[in-house]
């Protein structure tokens, strides 16, 4: 499964402004709305759903990476966005370090298989330190896309 298939390119940003968990989720969801991937009327309920998933345990999986996600009826296919912050965000992560790289995923309610596969893929990519470092250093959305494309090719060949 390639992340590029459901990543919304127009929503990618390398310059997040918010520095707390809710703010950063709002900002990314806002960008997905601007990109046309979410309806304005659904945004609040998506944000609420993502935050209530965070209640079960932070999706800050360490190494400066967070993968906030939820299922939500407002989408009919997987929708994801990658965003990076220069300032770092307190995400209550496993290792207590601030998060710099965010992979936010919203899945349709009735497709648990793709939802899990996308999460697993994202977590697998993020295990690669060099990839995470490169994402953090990326200076434009185009650079982010080309990094993801490289990673997609690497992980989807051979096996």
């Amino acid at each position: 499964m390639k992340l590029l298939e459901f990543l919304v390119p127009q929503a990618i940003t390398v310059d997040l402004q918010a520095t707390d968990k809710e703010g950063v989720i709002r900002e990314i969801v806002g960008r997905l709305r601007q990109a046309g991937a979410l309806a304005a009327s659904d945004c609040e309920s998506v944000i609420k759903a993502i935050l209530s998933r965070e209640e079960l345990g932070s999706t800050g999986i360490g190494r400066g990476v967070a993968v906030p996600h939820t299922r939500h009826p407002s989408v009919d296919k997987l929708v994801a966005c990658i965003a990076t912050s220069q300032k770092g965000v307190d995400f209550a992560s496993l290792d207590d370090h601030p998060a710099y790289v965010f992979f936010l995923l919203i899945s349709p309610p009735n497709q648990p298989g793709p939802h899990l596969r996308a999460l697993d893929n994202a977590a697998r990519y993020m295990r690669d330190d060099q990839f995470v470092d490169s994402l953090r250093a990326a200076e434009s959305p185009e650079a982010v896309i080309s990094l993801i494309r490289d990673m997609d090719t690497q992980h989807n060949s051979g096996s």
Partner: peptide
């Protein structure tokens, strides 16, 4: 492990998990 883990509070219930992952 060879993929990163998502931390969850141990008192999370199965129904809560099902709500988010439909397992």
């Amino acid at each position: 492990p060879d993929t990163l883990e998502f931390p969850l509070r141990a008192r999370t219930t199965i129904s809560e998990l099902q709500e988010f992952y439909l397992i």
